[in-house]
């Protein structure tokens, strides 16, 4: 039998996954779950920047891009939060502690944690879009005095779909963080906002002339979020969005993620809005 592929990070073929053990499976909501992963090789270094993603591989089923949703300072565990929508994500939902999963990465650009220093920060998340923003939030909270006012605006379909509800409750009780949640459809017990998340932008407490915005969610939601943010006076150059495209390689070689001249896997997924505005506006690019 051939020997297993060496796990040394140097000289790794970027197309070959690294095996991880599922340490913990956490159900988040009806259709979302988080996986906490540890590499087989304990010396394997887990450095990533908030906003980056991995290609996650389920044995015999396939591989899909999933953002890292954990804390960048945690060098022991890799955390991913996934919404079950199709073949691969469904197979991923059936993984249990002790199972193996493959991961390649981290790939792509990251949220502007440096650029945002000294400014107000507004995070606008729609649905599963909160997962790729959570590492940014962890980062800010660890370096809280480096940022101005921090606001999280989060929208989901219904109250049952709220991700990370315990953490959100904790963050809401903090004085150094504003959290506003809205749902499309309220239940009888829901006391909060109803309506699309972009509606929260107008009332949120931040100084639009001194704000960096990070937006993640369905493309249509990001479109409206950008519109509301610019209406408030946030410059397009201070707005960042995370793009989603079909991805087969993650390293600029398969061509699938192209958005005109952009390889979203390596030139993105996080983009400064003003730089891709024409590509964002044109249909079906």
């Amino acid at each position: 039998m051939a020997t297993s592929i060496e796990l040394t990070q140097a000289a790794r073929d970027p197309m070959i996954p690294v095996p991880y053990v599922v340490e913990r499976f956490l159900r988040e909501t009806n259709d979302t779950f988080s996986l906490e992963l540890e590499p087989f090789d304990p010396t394997y270094e887990l450095a990533f920047r908030p906003g980056q993603f991995n290609m996650l591989y389920v044995f015999g089923v396939g591989e899909v891009p999933i953002s890292i949703s954990g804390d960048a300072t945690d060098t022991k565990r890799l955390v991913h939060t996934t919404r079950e929508v199709g073949v691969v994500t469904r197979a991923m939902r059936n993984l249990k502690a002790g199972h193996t999963i493959g991961a390649r990465g981290p790939f792509g650009t990251s949220w502007p944690m440096e650029e945002a220093k000294g400014h107000d920060v507004v995070l606008v998340a729609g649905g599963i879009g909160l997962a790729p923003l959570r590492p940014a939030l962890y980062w800010i909270l660890r370096n809280r005095d480096e940022y101005g006012k921090v606001v999280l605006l989060y929208g989901t379909r219904s109250p049952e779909d709220i991700l990370y509800s315990k953490e959100l409750a904790k963050w809401r009780s903090q004085f150094d963080l504003e959290v506003h949640i809205t749902v499309d459809r309220a239940t009888t017990e829901w006391r909060g906002n109803v309506g699309v998340v972009t509606k929260l932008v107008g009332r949120a407490p931040f100084d639009p002339t001194d704000t960096v915005a990070m937006v993640c969610g369905p493309e249509i939601m990001m479109r409206f979020a950008v519109e509301e943010l610019t209406k408030r006076g946030v410059a397009e150059a201070n707005i960042y969005v995370s793009m989603e495209r079909n991805m087969k390689c993650g390293v600029g070689l398969c061509g699938h993620c192209q958005l005109r001249g952009e390889f979203v896997c390596k030139d993105g997924p996080v983009y400064r809005y003003d730089l891709i505005e024409p590509l964002f506006v044109e249909r079906e690019l």
Binding site: A2, T3, S4, I5, I16, P17, P19, V21, F59, G60, K96, G98, H99, T100, G102
Partner: peptide, 10 residues
């Protein structure tokens, strides 16, 4: 595959 685990082979 080997039980719940799998190995990658070059």
């Amino acid at each position: 595959r080997e039980g719940a685990r799998f190995h990658l082979l070059p």
